[in-house]
């Protein structure tokens, strides 16, 4: 087994927020904390694109590097987890993370008042007895130990959000892209974020509004 990864297909995501809701419900995530959220680019403009973002379980995770209490660890299957008993809520991981994955129950307050960091666990629980009440209370449910994938991906209605072993996820996405056709245009920035025409249209709209 290699590495557990998420992949969000921007061509399929319809911004339904089903993944966000599924995550919140499955783990009973407290108010103000979103382990997952949907980000939309060019919202309201024809050709807008959405992606669902959470912890990307980086291979070389910056949160792990900056943590002053070294409360992060990586499981054998590549999931980045942390020990909440060790966390001091300093917020360094939040500044280091390029995806804004670390969340704090008391919001952007001062050092020590933020509370312990909470983030996506890839539905793999944390360093407590598997399936125990303590594990659920601190980290949410441990679906991975039950042989299941993260609920956000399993609930995705358009199967935009894929989760699992990186090689399997890559195979699914590769097949999908090949079936979509379009050669080189099926990949990359232009497909995901729109071409030059859209930017020109937006610029014209903005200038027209002035």
């Amino acid at each position: 087994m290699g590495r557990m990864k998420f992949l969000c297909d921007a061509e399929r995501c319809i911004e339904c927020n089903g993944c966000v809701t599924a995550c919140k419900n499955e783990h009973e995530v407290p108010w103000g904390v979103n382990r997952r959220r949907v980000v939309t680019m060019n919202d309201g403009v024809p050709g807008e694109r959405s992606i669902s973002v959470a912890c990307m379980h980086c291979s070389d995770a910056p949160c792990m590097a900056v943590c002053p209490t070294d409360c992060f660890y990586k499981t054998e299957d590549g999931v980045v987890l942390h020990d909440k008993d060790q966390c001091i809520g300093c917020g360094y991981c939040f500044f280091a993370c390029p995806f804004g994955a670390p969340q704090f129950p008391n919001g952007p307050s001062a050092f020590g008042a933020r509370g312990k960091m909470d983030k996506c666990t890839f539905c793999a629980g944390g360093p407590e007895e598997t399936g125990s009440e303590a594990e659920y209370e601190k980290y949410g449910s441990n679906r991975l130990a039950e042989g299941k994938l993260p609920l956000c991906a399993e609930m995705c209605s358009t199967k935009a959000l894929l989760a699992g072993d990186a090689s399997v996820v890559a195979d699914i996405f590769r097949e999908r892209v090949l079936r979509r056709g379009g050669g080189a245009e099926a990949w990359g920035w232009q497909t995901a974020y729109g071409g030059g025409e859209q930017r020109r249209e937006r610029k014209q709209d903005r200038e027209g509004q002035k």
Binding site: M64, A65, C67, T69, D70, C71, F72, Y73, T75, E76, D77, L81, H82, D83, D85, Q86, A124, G125, G126, P127, E128, E129, T130, G131, N142, L144, A145, E146, G147
Partner: peptide, 19 residues
């Protein structure tokens, strides 16, 4: 220098009661 994990040890996903 990358620190070493200071928290509690965790069990692998396959070591749970299901598998």
């Amino acid at each position: 220098e990358q620190g070493t994990y200071q928290g509690k040890a965790d069990t692998a996903a396959w070591d749970g009661p299901a598998f």
